[in-house]
């Protein structure tokens, strides 16, 4: 049973019922205009972090673009120091509003540490990760990530390299993070 309005390939085409060519041309020009407008006000901020009109910032899109196009690339790895030994450290860092920061230590494959960190309030985004020694820039493995106000764990380095925590403050006020570590590692420090 075919409904009256249902489409049918056998239905003959009535040129009168179709949109006229001048109408289609006007519609095309309109579409190009809309595309250009959206390109500048929406896509450019969200993809490139460039916001010439201010609409992207108002809609909250510029932050996506900025995230995709960071001004500074990942900081350099710490210089090698002589020996590994069992040690304990406590370290406090302050993150400005929406600021991200990394604290890392060098470890060899099989070295272990236990760690605990907590913030003075709000949750932070964290990514506990490692970069293999001699790996290309931006090559890393996440061991643990998410959003939390505190986290603790025991960790055995699966490969030699630098392992550590990236925290990003999600609030509009400063947040401090206090990290305690014990284990075999060296050069525990915030990256500049």
């Amino acid at each position: 049973m075919v409904e009256p309005s249902s489409p049918s390939p056998e239905q003959p085409l009535d040129p009168e019922a179709l949109p006229s060519v001048p109408f289609l041309i006007r519609a095309s020009l309109g579409a190009v205009l809309v595309a250009a407008l959206l390109g500048v006000t929406v896509v450019l901020p969200a993809e490139e972090g460039i916001d010439p009109t201010g609409v992207g910032g108002w809609l909250g899109l510029t932050q996506i673009g900025e995230l995709k196009n960071p001004d500074e690339v990942a900081p350099a790895k710490p210089e090698a120091a002589p020996e590994y030994a069992f040690r304990s450290d406590e370290l406090t860092v302050t993150l400005g509003p929406r600021e991200g920061l990394e604290v890392k230590a060098s470890m060899r494959a099989g070295d272990e540490l236990v760690y605990a960190w907590q913030t003075d309030g709000g949750a932070v985004f964290f990514d506990f990760h490692g970069e293999p020694k001699g790996a290309a820039k931006d090559v890393f493995t996440s061991h643990e990530k998410g959003q939390a106000t505190d986290f603790e764990g025991a960790f055995e380095a699966p490969f030699e390299g630098v392992h550590g925590w990236y925290w990003k403050n999600l609030r509009s006020q400063p947040t401090t993070v206090t990290l305690k570590t014990s284990g075999v590692y060296r050069d525990l420090a915030p990256l500049p």
Binding site: L59, G60, Q63, I64, L67, Q147
Partner: peptide
């Protein structure tokens, strides 16, 4: 990829970005 990073780092109400990602 970059959008994924944004979604995972975002917190609270983010109406504009989520609408953009839906449209995209």
């Amino acid at each position: 990829g970059g959008d994924q990073l944004f979604i995972e780092q975002s917190t609270g109400s983010q109406l504009g970005p989520f609408a953009y990602l839906g449209a995209k």
